[in-house]
Design a protein around this nucleic acid. Sequence first.
DNA 1: TTGAAAGCGCTAACAT
DNA 2: ATGTTAGCGCTTTCAA
Lengths: 340, 340
Amino acid sequence: MTSIKDIALHCGVAISTVSRVLNNHPDVSQDTRDRVLQAAEALNYIPNTSARNLVRSSSDTIALLVKGVSNPFFSKLIKIIDREITLRGYTLELHQMDTSEDELRIGAQLANERKLIGILFLGGRFNYSPEEMALIHVPSVFCTYTNSFGTLDASAYSSVAIDDKQAACDAVDTLVSLGHRKIAILTANENDKSISELRFQGYKDALEKHGIAFDPNLVANTGTFSDMRAIYEATSRLIRRDSSFTAIFAIADLMAIVAIKALSDHGRSVPQDSSVVSIDGLDLSEYTLPTLTTLVQPTEEMGLACAKSIIDLIKHPGKHRQFTFETVLRPGGSVRKING
Amino acid sequence: MTSIKDIALHCGVAISTVSRVLNNHPDVSQDTRDRVLQAAEALNYIPNTSARNLVRSSSDTIALLVKGVSNPFFSKLIKIIDREITLRGYTLELHQMDTSEDELRIGAQLANERKLIGILFLGGRFNYSPEEMALIHVPSVFCTYTNSFGTLDASAYSSVAIDDKQAACDAVDTLVSLGHRKIAILTANENDKSISELRFQGYKDALEKHGIAFDPNLVANTGTFSDMRAIYEATSRLIRRDSSFTAIFAIADLMAIVAIKALSDHGRSVPQDSSVVSIDGLDLSEYTLPTLTTLVQPTEEMGLACAKSIIDLIKHPGKHRQFTFETVLRPGGSVRKING
DNA sequence: TTGAAAGCGCTAACAT
DNA sequence: ATGTTAGCGCTTTCAA
């Protein structure tokens, strides 16, 4: 592999000169500059970012650390964040991690390895502690994070998210206002100390608000947000166990889509025999049959807020803020009014 | 940030000793080992992979370089490849790139930066030249690549893919065997020198085979695989332009899903008024209403082949092979027989 | 305008 | 079993 040393040798200049040219430093004669650039091209030079990062004190790079890129809601958000960060003159680096990995640890590692100036976390846990946070020495914003199960002080973290509890509540409200009282819930995990648990809470709160008794038989746990087979099975079990519900609240669009299919296979069409409401507002949900009635996360605004937040935080270290967005009901074909 | 130097200082040992402990080298006394490990823990040591890669001659890491993680077919494939590579004792590193970036260049850069032992390319172009290939000095396998528009000799590259032309042909065959003759195609781009063009070719070949005249009016170009709005519009234009078709071949499942919605909005239900066949076999397509009749890519087998291929190639450099998989028809509810 | 040299964090000989 | 040292590719003073 060609290094700047090879270029220097080739041109008969010092490696520092080559470095200057490659980094667009001003104090180089046009002649030298041309020769070096030409040699770099000819020798097929490719810079080594690792070596560069090892010596640099800081980059212009913000990392977006994602748990679960396959999440369709995330893909759209990522696209927007990328656009906004780039627009503002910074470089965005996308890093994918496994569900099993600890995002804070990976973040800390990446930060000093790549000399990051900021990190955006997407899709992590909801229960960070101050001790854990101390690992990260770089401005960070948590996207879709609410400190609901953590012990962080509001002055100690930045976040961009929707109010999951409220969104779940709104979903149930929508169904109740259409006359539904027997409302089942399709959730991933009742107590995952994360998004699932939060939306489940919102569901229960809403029931209580409307004076509807909570019925454990109407709760279907899928154990997953993405495994369609598992979602299908969970819905089927629910139907077999207690088919008296008139509506299902699915905590994510993908779950709603699968639920509709399961209902259909059990002879219950949507919305004639059951109504379905969910949270997400995926593009896809406007193209299903029926289209989904869903609480849309304002992805554009959230992505913009993520980008702005991290850049603000980089410019004003320690000035933490939490942004909470409202979801918006997008009426679709998956619900109907019933007679109480 | 804590470095091994700090640990060495803390323990009163040489940094090489620390390095040995951290890399599980045998020649260290248990006592020293314990002390170092303890110090590393206490000082919150996080290794710097860049520095490590800079000096190492080789890692155990294979990179998976993906263009378009949001592609739902890719997400499943990635999961399988990850599992299989890890299973065989190697480390998989997932890297995402932009559509605009040159995968070969990025690959070359990553290879020497991270001291990769192999690269898996996913979602790139279909037209590499030997000169371009020369950039990569590391065993590489191209997933879902067919050298259809490139100038590579079969002895010079490894690949794992389906026969796109054949799959398209099979899709059309399926429709023809059900009595359809007026078959429209929903494609991304007729001449993208890639997957789209290949499947379009297969469509034309199949028509010819069955003695059906090719009708440009029945071609709808979406310009995209993922933008649902654009797919919807393209389908709508097709319907308005010439609604005489009885079936649509969509080159991807997602396109089929959107097409079904567009048809429905134009008063044509699937499969009663139009049949739809596509290529992909996404999990999702088993849960739509109607379910998709689609040519399934054998994702499991392909992922396994990717993993095996790259490891074989690492062990036997230069021994290139191309694997081509057959798609399998998965009957769904989106087609019906008509009377010729 | 250019060159020489130090050093980022780490591994791998080579000593001892 | 452990320490010393060179050097990976690069940027950045400091001199000239």
